[in-house]
Amino acid sequence: MNAAIGLDYWDIAFSATIVAGLGILLAYYRLGVTRSLVVASVRLVIQLQVIGYVLKFLFAEGKLVYVAAMAFIMLLVASREIVARQKHRLKGWGSFGLGASTLFVSSFAVGLFGLLVVVKPDPWYLPQYAIPLLGMIMSNTMSAISLSMDRLTSALVDNRAIIEQRLALGQSAREATLPYLRDCIRTGIMPVVNSMATAGIVALPGMMTGQILAGASPTEAVKYQIIIWFFIAGGVGFGMATALKLLEMRLFDKRQRLRLDRFA
């Protein structure tokens, strides 16, 4: 294996000129996104620098407790992100708890399955494998959970009068919400299905590209990419199903009344 070509800070600075040019163009047209672009670029640089050192430390230490702490922080940040993307939030910590518990159950279960059954690094929590694997599963699951939760609540808020009339005719909460639920599951799972269907044709998936750049054989890299996609599909699907089920239980009470008053 030949190691990847190293980049120095000048290389990064040269690349940044492209974004700087874009920022000037956007400012010229007064699109009001220049500031966001600058903030995002600075965040990108700082966050990734920091994570680079954190990972270096984690890999050097290789202790389970550090890996677990890292996974816990990832979970907290992702859960906060889920809440931030909700237009209608449950009162108190409801949305955070729902997002965090669902994300935890689905992505950790799939991640552990991947580590213990499929990849089997030694030790099983080897950070070089555990952290990126969990990260990829979790970020996709996070997007799907937040998107589908937001869609279901918004659909029920927008159609509250129709839901109530369905219930008034004796339909169950499930019958009354089924069309919206179907729509949510479809929108949540379609991005993953589409990405899987076009993987390798339209774009080389990021992880595979990384491995190839690092000198791995393409045929090995694709194997990893394939199992990663299966894990992501599992995490996304199971995570979303659990989130929507739990959300439905909060949206309706035991007398199957629509309880939008539980949302802030």
Binding site: N159, A161, I162, E164, Q165, R166, L167, A168, L169, G170, Q171, S172, P179, R255, Q256, R257
Partner: peptide, 19 residues
């Protein structure tokens, strides 16, 4: 059960919606 209650005790809203 609530579904049966509402089938028996039927509410007719002022504005009827169709879906």
């Amino acid at each position: 059960p609530p579904t049966q209650w509402r089938r028996n005790v039927a509410y007719l809203p002022a504005e009827i919606l169709w879906w």
